[in-house]
Design a protein around this nucleic acid. Sequence first.
DNA 1: TCATATGATGAACCATGATTCAGGTTATGG
DNA 2: CCATAACCTGAATCATGGTTCATCATATGA
Lengths: 193, 193
Amino acid sequence: MGEDRPLRADAARNRGRILEAATRQIMARGPEVPMEAIAEDAGVAVGTLYRHFPTKQVLVVAVLAECFGALTSAAEAAADRIDAGASAIAEFTAFARIVMEDAAGNLAMKAAARSLGADVHEAEERSRGEAAMTRLLDAAKAEGTVRPDLGIEDCYLFFITVPVDQPPAMRDRWFELMIAGFRAGAVSRSTAP
Amino acid sequence: MGEDRPLRADAARNRGRILEAATRQIMARGPEVPMEAIAEDAGVAVGTLYRHFPTKQVLVVAVLAECFGALTSAAEAAADRIDAGASAIAEFTAFARIVMEDAAGNLAMKAAARSLGADVHEAEERSRGEAAMTRLLDAAKAEGTVRPDLGIEDCYLFFITVPVDQPPAMRDRWFELMIAGFRAGAVSRSTAP
DNA sequence: TCATATGATGAACCATGATTCAGGTTATGG
DNA sequence: CCATAACCTGAATCATGGTTCATCATATGA
């Protein structure tokens, strides 16, 4: 089924350049950047883009996979630090901040945040990310510093609702409220009316 | 400067139809609905749309003003009920729910939520809304059921971050977390680590 | 070195959608 | 009942951007 025939040298080089250019352009200008712009950045003709990626969507998904991969690595690193004795709530919060900043500064992620539910990430990549986030959540719950009913869905909710095009001060405020909501009731219900 | 020359009968009728059609179409299909679609719905030719509204943006803004007006009325009604003795937190929460549902179900509001910061609402309409929300906030703060540092910005933040295209269950969950964040620390800091 | 499969090119094609305008209608005041 | 200013119509114009394909170039194995 698959063709493993090794790419011709120039083709391999172009493929790499295209992916780099696409990443650069999509992160900086968003998924709505014209294919022409990506082609120019890569130093090839549009036709070449289509030889390597049948549609624009495929290219965008490829770029997103890279971006999500980076976030997943950050989550894993945080979880590792917790295992090594770091404060779970501190690591959890720090990771959340990274997610927020990424969603706001990386136009690729910003778009992804808006359309999650679409077939954005491969099952494989996704499950790796979920595993890492689960480690973070479980550690924080064991520590008793977040609501015991938090789940992966809440993490997605966090990502999805980052106020991406608000000024930094506004985002910081949102972060505070959101984290407060994640912690609320962690120890007691004393704030209920 | 302004021209008060009364519109010709047919022109007035068309203007009305156009506004109705635009409201219907934009609320149902979003601001990206083609002008053609609005014209057809209104039973006029595109040219007529442009006679009454110089650009699409003007038409969209007009529709948004209507929508915001409706929300403002809801806020005022809630504030009135509080003045009449109703629970502030209950009214506040109920109003928040209305906002959420509107943002999710009305594609015009959904788009507005995404681009707030743009010149969406007239200063006049806006201040009326802010006045109503301030009444709600003040009452809830006086009651001691929300964080004492909540402000108008937080209300915008709420509106802006509604997870508009998630399934209802997800939105409800978000609502719970968000309201928890709004209340957190209202009475005590007992939930701090 | 050569044949040729693989790869590259970019103008052309197609679709969508905002906006315009030349020409045909009609409400309305006199 | 007219004259005519206001209106309306909708095909045409522009602009954007994804995708294709006939044509040309070259990497590579024999």
